[in-house]
């Protein structure tokens, strides 16, 4: 079954994107080609639904991804007919189509120039500013993208999506402290986002296990990672990603952490003692195996998990079993 067209489709697997873009002709046929925005005609025709425009937007994304440029153009035309050329979101979508169709670097430079022209007229056009940053990053000019993004964030510091992108850019450059800082800003704006807590835990774990980390900051990162993963499973029952991270961190601490133990100086970042770590590890193992068992059996009410995530959890659990049986031998 193809996923619904009402959610943004940027992280779907290729097969679902293909299924979505194959819906394009049906959606285009079943909805009217133009919808008038005048209030008078709205009295006589069926009311327009906001879902339709969201569908068009998501269709453009999946069609561009699968290379169905014609359908993307049709969707874009309808959006232009309804909202006009000056609409900021429509401008960004138009830019997106041009980016996707650009054949070489000079065409991309053209698109970039267009973005800069629009921004010169109106530098509060946030969708276009975001597209420009994404294009810069896509062209490999990562430092330009980062500085543009920092500028954007100075101008609108409550944009959680932009902070998250900044964190991703820093992470791609290996700048873990900066990436963690940006992700913490996201958490300030969305304190209940369980996936962001898990993401921050992953960042802390990556920072801790990166080569060349001093003992003190290793401890700090690991303690923070435990805290973040624990918070994510506190915010969300049976959160596979949170328990996976929790187990991974505890396992690393229990197996190899002892040789890196430095004197604990800061009470705030104290790693829980070995007994508590073991108990956390046991809890995470029990939860993970419960999730894997139910999900593998396709039990009612346990079918929402991602296949790949379940496979990874199974792998982690079997590694654990293999290691413990090796110790017993």
């Amino acid at each position: 079954m193809a996923p619904s067209l009402l959610y943004p489709a940027t992280q779907l697997p290729p097969a679902s994107a293909l299924a979505l873009s194959q819906q394009a002709p049906a959606v285009l046929r079943s909805s009217p080609a133009t919808v008038s925005s005048s209030p008078l005609s709205a009295l006589f025709s069926a009311p327009e639904k906001p879902e339709l425009w969201i569908k068009y937007e998501n269709l453009i994304l999946s069609c561009l991804r699968t290379g169905d440029d014609q359908a993307a153009h049709q969707c874009l035309e309808r959006l232009v007919a309804r909202f006009g050329n000056g609409n900021e979101r429509v401008q960004a979508l138009r830019g997106l189509v041009k980016e996707a169709e650009a054949q070489d670097d000079s065409a991309l430079e053209e698109v970039l120039k267009e973005y800069e022209q629009i921004l010169a007229e109106n530098d509060t056009n946030i969708p276009i500013a975001k597209r420009r940053i994404a294009l810069l990053r896509s062209m490999g000019r990562v430092s330009d993208a980062a500085s543009a993004l920092v500028q954007l964030l100075e101008f609108s510091p409550t944009d959680a999506e932009a902070w998250s992108e900044l964190s991703d850019i820093y992470l791609s450059q290996g700048l873990y402290p900066q990436a963690i800082y940006a992700m913490e800003e996201v958490l300030l704006l969305a304190p209940n986002a369980w996936n962001i807590h898990a993401r921050l835990g992953e960042l802390q774990f990556m920072a801790a296990t990166a080569p060349g980390v001093a003992g003190g900051s290793y401890q700090k990162y690991m303690a923070e990672a435990i805290k973040r993963f624990a918070r994510s499973v506190e915010l969300c029952d049976d959160y596979l990603r949170g328990y996976y991270g929790l187990k991974l961190v505890c396992k690393t601490l229990l197996s190899g952490g002892s040789n890196k133990t430095a004197k604990q100086t800061d009470d705030e970042f104290a790693i829980p003692d070995t007994r508590n770590t073991e108990r956390l590890n046991e809890l995470a193992t029990a939860k993970l195996s419960e999730i894997v068992r139910h999900s593998t059996a396709r039990d009612q009410g346990w079918r929402g998990y991602d296949e790949a995530e379940i496979a990874a959890a199974r792998q982690l659990l079997s590694d654990d079993v293999a290691a413990s049986s090796a110790i017993e031998r």
């Binding site: 992280q11 561009l64 997106l96 990053r137 999506e161 998250s164 969305a190 996936n195």
Partner: peptide, 14 residues
Amino acid sequence: FSALESRPNFVDIR
């Protein structure tokens, strides 16, 4: 909150 991780406005379409 999944949009905070997929970031649809920053999508790298190419």
